[in-house]
Design a protein around this nucleic acid. Structure first.
Lengths: 181, 181
DNA sequence: TTCCTTTCTTATCTTTTGTAAACGGAAGCT
DNA sequence: AGCTTCCGTTTACAAAAGATAAGAAAGGAA
């Protein structure tokens, strides 16, 4: 991302702090928000038929929290996004940014492309880990890729991100621990 | 996608036919190809350490086959893309298209955004199915979403797409069949 | 601190999956 | 046709996962 883009982005960014438990984005929201996490931890989750909350993704510092549904598909958000710790963010309203950036289409499109690239890379890697890896391998990879999340997010959230149950993750952890001896 | 975009795209598209077994995109290719499948069936796959081919995705008619790595990340393709049947496609070279479309940045960016949207939607839904569904549910959903693929692609390919083994898929199928009685 | 709630672990049981191998059928080839 | 190769199903066994419940540990609030 070049300097000009960053400057333009920051001009439309505002600093904001969310307390633990607060929602950055509520389910069904159509606000085209983008948050850049300076510090803290966020999770996205949806509620399935049995009214259980299923965590979909975890966002540590330096991650982008994006209302995907709104920005990409013009539909209300499937997810809620909740701060798991006191979380300081840069908040960017994509819509306002987009309107202002019409004068400079190149900057907008550069940023848009970078954003989409970033999201696609993450989500492709995730599908790969589901296709290629076992749950245990997936957990090991997750620890490698996101060491800053382990021991900060409850394991039950991490379990759902990995597509397994919390009980199963606990067993995987003890299995790994016993292998080391 | 608006008419103008389609026309511009088609002007840079060429018709091409791949015989069964031919590769549309070879592993490590950096060609920024996009194929729109008019008829036929394509699979993407990679080779893991044990030199097994793992099918990653199946593309029926009307799907877009994209060299994701090259177009998005400027890296060589992880996957090979192989025609499973005689496959007729529109081939679009993204790079040539991008160069020509600099005169009309809006059209380019509209198309680029639509392409990214399309890819993101697909891959997000796929992650969702891994997080929320059991293998059996995933197979049922796949049959619903891609009925035209079932009975055309070998089950072993479909199994890998769903993140399970061919043997397990066979058991799932017999389980489903016995439930219907 | 104490109390309460949440989270993690453990145990039991059932179901499902992975692995390896064998079988049978279908498809392709000469 | 005959042959081979590939694919899918099935079987048997071991390993792992889901569900449920109970107990231990950790975290928060008063």
């Amino acid at each position: 991302m070049n300097l000009r883009s960053i400057l333009l982005l920051l001009r439309h960014a505002s600093l904001k702090t969310f307390q633990k438990g607060e929602l950055l984005i509520e389910k069904d929201s159509t606000h085209m928000n983008i948050f850049y996490i300076r510090s803290g931890l966020v999770r996205s989750f949806f509620i399935n038929e049995e009214t259980d909350e299923i965590t979909f993704q975890l966002f540590p510092e330096y991650a982008l929290v994006v209302n995907v549904q709104a920005i990409l598909f013009d539909t209300p958000s499937k997810f809620s996004y909740e701060a798991l710790e006191t979380t300081r963010v840069y908040q960017i309203n994509f819509q306002a940014f987009r309107e202002l950036a019409t004068q400079n289409a190149k900057v907008l499109n550069t940023n848009q492309k970078l954003l989409f690239q970033h999201m696609l890379q993450q989500v492709y890697q995730r599908v790969e880990s589901f296709v290629l890896l076992s749950p245990e391998e997936r957990y090991l990879k997750y620890m490698q890729d996101y060491p800053q999340v382990i021991n900060r997010a409850p394991d039950k959230y991490i379990a759902h991100v990995l597509g397994i149950t919390p009980v199963s993750l606990s067993r995987i952890r003890s299995r790994i621990a016993s292998k080391k001896n």
